[in-house]
Simulated assay, not measured.
Amino acid sequence: MTQILPAAGVLLIADPFLKDPNFKRTVVFLCEHQEEGSFGFVLNRRYDFTLDQLMASAEGMPITVFYGGPVQLDTIHFLHRYPEKIPGGFEVTDGIFWGGDFETAVELLKAGEIEVSGIRFFIGYSGWSEGQLQGELDEKSWITSHGSRKLIFHKNLEAIWKDALLELGGDYQQLVNYPLDPQMN
């Protein structure tokens, strides 16, 4: 089972026994990985508030916001599949874009010109300082995989972690059945 090296577009799939409450049974999509550090967004944690509750410009739009991670919980980020309509985005990997003009994205959603299923909003992000992520990978806290639109924009939040492991096949498929706490087995 060879690990994929961390890079933009790679998924970090939490080991079944990872205890950190911020990342237990999560999948993180890395948007950037450099020697100085890495950052990405947790894909499978719903935040307590919707977009219209967080941003006045999104009034009347009760769109799900995801908990991107424990860093800078006063910021909103987004991933999308609309580079031709939302200017300023950065292509993370094949057809998945990070950021761009937030107000344009909101106006396009209001006008029905883009689908909610093709955009994900996150509060905060997940970040690692220089060497930190590599240390966690060495400790086997994460399993790496390539990000895909299917997982990034998955319709069933509760299935993302399991589906990410199932896509890897082989021995990884068995991990989906591991209990949260092996002592309770």
Rank of each mutant, 00 (worst) to 15 (best):
L151R: 07
S129Q: 15
H146T: 12
L168T: 09
E139I: 00
L168I: 04
L168W: 11
K150M: 10
V176I: 15
E136M: 11
A164M: 12
E158C: 01
S117T: 11
L157H: 05
R120F: 03
Q132Y: 10
E139L: 09
G170T: 00
S129H: 07
G131Q: 10
A159K: 13
Y125R: 06
K150W: 04
E139T: 00
I143Q: 04
S129N: 10
G170P: 05
R149W: 00
F122C: 05
A159T: 10
G135W: 02
F153W: 12
G147C: 03
G170V: 02
N156Q: 14
I160Y: 06
H146N: 14
I119Q: 01
G118A: 06
E136D: 15
L133G: 04
K162S: 13
Q173S: 14
L137A: 10
W142I: 05
S141L: 03
E167H: 14
L168G: 04
T144E: 00
G131K: 12
W128A: 09
Q132L: 11
E115L: 05
H146I: 12
S148I: 04
Y172Q: 02
I123S: 06
I160A: 10
F121P: 11
F122M: 08
I123Y: 00
E167K: 13
G135A: 09
S148L: 10
D138F: 09
R120A: 01
I143R: 08
A159H: 12
H146E: 15
A159V: 06
Y125L: 13
D171A: 13
K155D: 14
I119W: 03
I114L: 07
K162I: 03
G131E: 13
R149G: 12
